[in-house]
């Protein structure tokens, strides 16, 4: 019972931080609220007994927060000015309502909070991972065994995403072009 109250408290904290991050006009406050959302998520993962995800979440959050604050305070104007367009607001509210109605239908079919999704299936893959993961891979950390042995192909895709992001950042944010453009002949 105490855990459930804790989860509701964390959820309220994350929701309030998200609302402030969207609604405030100060960029620095918005960045700090995004950091608060990340730390709330890290606490959430910690209380759900997923320390691997919690470590990754908090480390990535710290790095991203430092970079975002560094970028924000190096700007001249940190206040957002201007109003929202009426038509864009109406369109986004309608789309969000449609997504919410569809999500309600889907969430009703999920198992209750805390129950494993594959608990009812007799010969599911996750049961095999949990019962035989240690003797098949020899890794004491079952998360490592899954992401680097059973599902290593997914990890390869994740590494490819990082590689692509480096290439994109290096190409788009390059300071000077590799070859100077030729002068137009007049």
């Amino acid at each position: 019972m105490a855990e459930v109250i804790l989860f509701y408290f964390l959820m309220a904290f994350i929701l309030i931080a998200a609302l402030i991050a969207v609604e405030t006009t100060d960029l620095l406050s918005a960045v700090i609220c995004v950091g608060a959302i990340g730390f709330g998520c890290a606490l959430f993962f910690l209380f759900l007994r997923a320390p691997d995800i919690a470590i990754t979440q908090i480390v990535v959050e710290v790095l991203a927060l430092v970079i975002l604050i560094r970028v924000t305070i190096s700007r001249n104007a940190t206040f957002v000015t201007g109003d929202r367009e009426f038509f864009a607001s109406v369109v986004s509210v309608v789309i969000l309502m449609m997504i919410f109605l569809m999500a309600v239908q889907v969430l009703n079919s999920l198992p209750a909070f805390g129950d494993a999704v594959f608990a009812e299936v007799t010969d599911s893959a996750s049961k095999t991972y949990i019962s035989q993961g240690m003797e098949k891979t020899g890794a004491a950390n079952i998360v490592s065994a899954v992401i680097l042995d059973f599902r290593a192909y997914d990890t390869l895709g994740e590494a490819t995403v990082l590689f692509t992001s480096v290439i994109g950042a290096a190409v788009i944010l390059r300071k000077r072009p590799r070859k100077l453009p030729e002068e137009p002949q007049i």
Binding site: I55, V59, A139, N141, S144, I147
Partner: peptide
């Protein structure tokens, strides 16, 4: 120690990058 304790390549790599930051 990624195969024994929580953590692993991704989290450790981000920590290494954060020391350079």
């Amino acid at each position: 120690f990624g195969h024994l304790t929580p953590g692993g390549g991704f989290a450790g790599g981000v920590i290494l990058a954060s020391s350079y930051v």
